[in-house]
């Protein structure tokens, strides 16, 4: 136990030490936001700031949430409330290869759930999890709008169409660092 009057490292200091470049980039973005004293109008920048931060860090660690909270003069709890509400945001690091199986209605009626099960078996992770080696993340999406190619799998930016469970191992093999 350290004494509470001893100076502890702030979120910004910790993040700057661990991820100096990314932190600088986040700060640069926050600097150009027209932030004022009025919390109501600051709040309007929250979602765009979170999008930006997640784009930089890949996820939203608690230090990032703290920095954004301090800048926008909002509470941490409110920020966490927003992050947990929207499915786009995550506070957990996710795998380098983001395998997202579209489970929109069109893909579902064409058997997307079988594709998810097959990925889950081969990667030994459940939907929403990242593999222990940090390579793969398995998720489901609600419609990417490419319904003519159903079922659709997206690996990062790459789109695979008309996917069958038999194609799963090939898709995984395509993921090379």
């Amino acid at each position: 136990m350290t004494c509470c009057c001893e100076k502890t490292e702030s979120a910004l200091e910790k993040l700057s030490r661990l991820e100096p470049e990314k932190t600088a980039s986040l700060n640069a973005f926050l600097d150009q936001l027209p932030i004022g004293k009025d919390v109501e109008s600051n709040r309007a920048h929250l979602i765009v700031a979170l999008h930006q931060a997640q784009g930089i860090f890949g996820y939203l660690p608690s230090e990032v949430q703290q920095i954004i909270a301090e800048r926008l003069k909002l509470t941490r709890s409110e920020i966490y409330g927003v992050i947990s509400f929207y499915s786009y945001f995550t506070d957990q690091p996710i795998g380098r290869f983001k395998i997202n199986v579209c489970c929109g209605t069109a893909c579902f009626v064409k058997g997307a759930n079988l594709v998810v099960e097959q990925f889950s078996r081969e990667l030994k992770i459940k939907e929403g999890e990242t593999s222990a080696d940090g390579r793969f993340f398995l998720g489901v999406l609600r419609c990417v709008g490419a319904c003519s190619l159903a079922p659709v799998v997206m690996v990062n930016e790459r789109v695979y169409g008309n996917v069958t469970p038999a194609m799963v191992s090939k898709i995984i093999a395509d993921c090379k660092d």
């Binding site: 709040r43 309007a44 979602i47 765009v48 927003v82 929207y86 499915s87």
Partner: peptide
């Protein structure tokens, strides 16, 4: 332009407005 962040309920107009305001939708 204002960006959504993945919430179906934000298609409802009052929820959409809250989302633009930076709140939970």
């Amino acid at each position: 332009l204002k960006y959504g962040a993945g919430a179906f309920v934000c298609g409802e107009e009052t929820a959409l407005i809250h989302s633009i305001e930076g709140k939970r939708g």
